[in-house]
């Protein structure tokens, strides 16, 4: 059965609401409006306003309320319309959700799931095009996962709800319209393991989110040139699956990290450092990176496209690595 990414997320939410009376969904325009990306469309009619709660534009308050509700025994799914607006709730996420377990000596836990749309590519301008998942991955106490595939869109939420810790799920806004088939029989996924989406021998493209599809496209182009790229989907940004990263890089001996975040102080920097720390002597070339240009993402289509990683810039980075042995 074909399914769109947004419908896969909705089915995951429906399952969760049916399976556990403690679960509820809360956020801006999730009910009456049907979700700003139509993810929660129809859920208000099916589950009612107690469990599909529209909130005012009060990100700090409703994220904090999610934390409190989780402490109080419920299992909230909080939708922050986009990561851009999560900045208004940063205090609650970083100072409260991430710390309460540790700070209370393990007496408390915050089983909260926050879903956020993320990313650029739709000409929404600088304030609506952030990719800040790498930032959140900096914070101990949070778990960060990124469903890039339909299977993960369909199944990650259950894993997140099963976690006793706060989990942030980042849904790239470019993926909501993506359609395809779910893997038959796949009922469970985890939040710990990276997944090889294309096996290859010559180089590992390490990525997550929408960039996964750019890497797969680059790999297809490179294949025609006789270059066999492996594509590793990180899936979880915190904790990172070091074992999977190192296993792949040791096989291919080359790594290109593709991240829609900016390069400086980024998730790509973290992954590169770990490779250097753990697999340096297995490398045949310096680790390379393809990231978003260090500008607030511009509106104009051609400028935005030039700012973001693309299959072309990814393929070029790989060629560069293989021919000169130098980083891209």
């Amino acid at each position: 059965m074909r399914i769109a990414y947004r419908d896969a997320v909705r089915e995951a939410i429906r399952d969760a609401l049916k399976a556990d009376p403690r679960v509820f969904l809360m956020g801006e325009d999730v009910g009456r409006y049907g979700g700003s990306y139509a993810v929660s469309k129809g859920l208000l009619e099916e589950f009612g306003p107690q469990r599909i709660r529209d909130t005012p534009l009060s990100e700090s308050a409703f994220v904090g309320a999610g934390i409190g509700a989780a402490l109080g025994g419920l299992r909230p799914i909080v939708e922050i319309m986009t990561v851009n607006f999560s900045l208004l709730a940063l205090d609650q996420i970083v100072n409260n959700a991430a710390t309460l377990s540790h700070m209370s000596g393990g007496q408390l836990s915050v089983p909260l799931v926050i879903r956020l749309a993320t990313g650029a590519g739709r000409q929404l301008g600088a304030q609506h095009s952030h990719s800040l998942e790498g930032w959140y991955a900096h914070i101990p106490g949070l778990r960060i996962a990124v469903p890039a595939t339909l299977d993960d869109a369909r199944r990650m939420l259950a894993a997140a709800l099963a976690s006793p810790d706060p989990v942030l799920l980042f849904e790239h806004l470019y993926l909501y319209n993506m359609e395809g088939e779910l893997t038959p029989g796949l009922e469970r996924v985890d939040l710990e393991h990276a997944a090889i989406r294309r096996a290859g021998r010559d180089v590992t493209l390490i990525t997550y989110g929408w960039s996964l599809y750019k890497c797969l496209a680059a790999a297809a182009t490179l294949a025609q040139e006789g270059i066999d790229a492996e594509v590793l989907d990180l899936r979880a940004l915190r904790p990172l699956d070091d074992a999977a990263i190192m296993a792949s890089v040791r096989r291919t001996r080359r790594a290109v990290i593709v991240d829609e975040g900016w390069r400086s102080g980024s998730l790509s920097a973290e992954v590169a450092t770990r490779i250097v720390e753990q697999a340096f002597y297995d490398l045949d070339a310096p680790v390379a990176r393809v990231c978003t240009a260090e500008v607030p993402v511009p509106y104009a289509k051609h400028l935005e496209a030039a700012a973001l990683p693309s299959p072309e810039t990814i393929a070029a980075a790989v060629r560069n690595l293989l021919t000169s042995g130098a980083g891209g």
Binding site: Q123, L124, G125, Q127, H128, P296, Y299, A300, L303
Partner: peptide, 10 residues
């Protein structure tokens, strides 16, 4: 008026 970087919202 924003050199194409802002768009409708900026």
């Amino acid at each position: 008026c924003s050199r194409g970087r802002g768009g409708s919202m900026h």
